[in-house]
Design a protein around this nucleic acid. Sequence first.
DNA 1: CAGAATCCCATTCGATACTG
DNA 2: CAGTATCGAATGGGATTCTG
Lengths: 225, 225
Amino acid sequence: MKLPKETKIHGRWYDDACGTAFALELVGERWSLLVMRELMLGPRRFSDLRASLPGISAKVLTERLAGLEASGVVLRETLPPPAAVQVYGLTEWGYRAEPIMQELGRWAAASPLHDPGLPLSSVSFMLSLRTMLDTARADGGSAAAGFGIGEDTFIARLANGEMPVRRESIDKVDFAFLARDAQVLVALFYGKVDPATLEAAGALEIRGDRAAAFAFVTLFALPSG
Amino acid sequence: MKLPKETKIHGRWYDDACGTAFALELVGERWSLLVMRELMLGPRRFSDLRASLPGISAKVLTERLAGLEASGVVLRETLPPPAAVQVYGLTEWGYRAEPIMQELGRWAAASPLHDPGLPLSSVSFMLSLRTMLDTARADGGSAAAGFGIGEDTFIARLANGEMPVRRESIDKVDFAFLARDAQVLVALFYGKVDPATLEAAGALEIRGDRAAAFAFVTLFALPSG
DNA sequence: CAGAATCCCATTCGATACTG
DNA sequence: CAGTATCGAATGGGATTCTG
């Protein structure tokens, strides 16, 4: 006779009261943190997530979402009619995991083995901007910067040294960067490639106040050493 | 004919330039971060590591150490004679991973599911002190606090709002806490259990300047909510 | 299209035994 | 003590299929 195999929160790996160990039990499985990363800028649908995470299978995504939901990190909700679609979003506590990803990224960026040539999801790029914002230089400045990356649009609103980013349509911004993919923006913001070159290649379009847009780009930089 | 199967850095999981994803390729395997945690306060021997990580097998520990060495996180060295034993330590870059663990711990501590009753390694406890130091209250203060936890001894040197912790014998400190295990110190520092109770139970001994020791304890607290 | 269910192979893990 | 070797069991994850 088999027990009905209750939803397990994935049984206690490390017998350890350390907060780090507990966190790893919650989000230490393969893919978990990357799923959370993709939700960090707002709820998404199952297939959006799948598309943003090259290599994840439907099964694994289902499992991770279920696990994260059981852990109180993810919330599954059905949008009100007429949309009536299912979306997954982070709980308030889930959103507070952003510093974990920032520290991981900051640390890994200092590795000599890092290959920045790989593809990048639009969310990854937008989150990296938040991490790489030079708060000293940005302080006092303010701007509403639009981003169009493939099908996705975001607005980053710089004010008081903070810069929340939201998935939002980009009308009413001071300027906007429209790019085919996130790598183009990596070249622009971190590679400091000349915008004119990218525009000439048809990979980038800058709308609105171009001077302000160029100034905005200078607020971001990879850690120096 | 079989290829000699070169040391693989464990082949590319996520095809993703995001720093977070890359970090997870380096240290995202089960146990990796906990091994690093145990090395965070100084080099250890294989069997010390095994003893501090309840549940890890010799095989997995060997594999993780090799992987971390290949990634440039861990360094294997042989102590000069007459000791001549093998120890594993973090590289300079490896030590810079501490904020990752702090953020993980901080975040997980806010979970309602966290069970603080589990056993805790001495390193976990000492690292938690660094995380939970109330820098506002500690600023200006200074002290050399000794800790004896089981067989391990550490000194935490508070000065200028910083508090490095080192594996070191505890003579020449202002005061020292001697405890049977880390849980006793959790009760003292975070549970705010009366020291007298713990001493009466034979679980704790406080040496040196007791008043200063009591004041020191008040500098640490779990996040309020 | 969203996602649950099944199948099956590859990998990983842990226990035990063994070695310098 | 510091691992290596081997083996069986558990798990993971891709592919495919099925349902609303």
